[in-house]
Amino acid sequence: MTVRPLRLCVFGDSFVAGVGDPAHRGWVGRVTEHALGELPIDLTVYNLGIRRDTSSDVRARWQSEALARFPRECDNRVIMSFGVNDTTLQDGSLRVEPAETESTLAAILEDAASHGWPTLVVGPPPIADEQQNTRTAALDERLAALCQGLTVPYLHTFSHLAGATSWMREAAQRDGAHPSAQGYSDLAELVRADIAAWLGTPAESVGGRV
């Protein structure tokens, strides 16, 4: 069986980085472990989450970081996941307005398409702040609609993790935002099958154009 070389960059915030997980695996590490065990691919994953990063911060850095890691001869792909920091109030104002977050994601997807890099988006999760969660839920729907219009896969996490879940319970017990191991395991379980299916589909089938 031919093993397809695949390189994946995962960009985003502290949830991508796995802040709070005592095992330092987060959801990205757990999904990677699953993919390596299930798929006939030579997979290298780069976790490029940075704590406190907004969509604007990710946009400013992602292309140069991806180019440094993507060999031309490989199937190169991108996962984006951000939004909670955008909906955070700072000095009484949103760090990033929803319309700007949407336009930023649209620009990122267009740039990824220009390189021929298939892209998948993982939506923002909830935190232990009801008012901010209202803002994040609205942003989640807005970003999902954008991706649907561009035929880019979008994985909702917010509605699945909100409520009486390990994610919310652990976040409330810690810093109000970041869960521990079980919360990240639950998030990984939510997205791993869809990500594995996406990774297992050849690039010419999933497309790198929007």
Rank of each mutant, 00 (worst) to 15 (best):
M1V: 01
R4C: 11
P5L: 13
P5V: 11
P5G: 12
R7Q: 05
C9G: 10
C9A: 09
D13E: 09
G18F: 01
V19A: 02
H24W: 10
H24Y: 10
G26I: 15
V28Q: 02
G29P: 03
R30N: 13
A35N: 05
G37H: 13
E38D: 14
E38N: 06
L43S: 06
T44Y: 09
T44V: 10
Y46E: 10
N47S: 11
N47L: 08
G49Q: 08
G49V: 02
I50F: 08
D53Y: 10
D53H: 06
S56N: 11
S56Q: 13
V58I: 04
A60K: 11
R61Y: 09
R61V: 11
R61T: 15
R61W: 13
W62N: 09
L67G: 00
R69C: 01
F70Y: 12
C74F: 11
D75E: 12
N76D: 05
N76L: 04
N76S: 03
R77L: 03
I79R: 03
S81Y: 00
S81V: 01
N85P: 00
T88S: 12
Q90V: 11
D91F: 08
G92S: 13
S93E: 15
L94Q: 15
E97N: 05
P98A: 12
P98F: 05
P98H: 09
P98E: 14
T101M: 07
E102R: 06
T104L: 14
T104E: 15
T104H: 12
T104I: 15
A106H: 07
A107R: 14
I108Q: 07
D111V: 02
H115G: 13
G116T: 12
W117G: 08
T119C: 10
T119N: 07
V122Y: 06
P124W: 03
I127Y: 03
N133V: 05
T134A: 15
T134C: 14
T136P: 07
A137G: 03
D140F: 00
E141R: 08
A144R: 13
L146A: 06
C147R: 13
Q148T: 12
T151I: 15
V152R: 07
H156P: 14
H156D: 07
H156K: 04
T157K: 01
S159R: 04
L161E: 13
A162D: 10
A164Y: 07
Y184M: 08
D186P: 02
L187F: 03
V191T: 05
V191P: 03
D194F: 00
A196R: 14
A197S: 13
G200F: 10
G200T: 11
E204P: 09
V206N: 13
V206M: 14
G207V: 12
G207E: 09
G208T: 08
V210I: 11
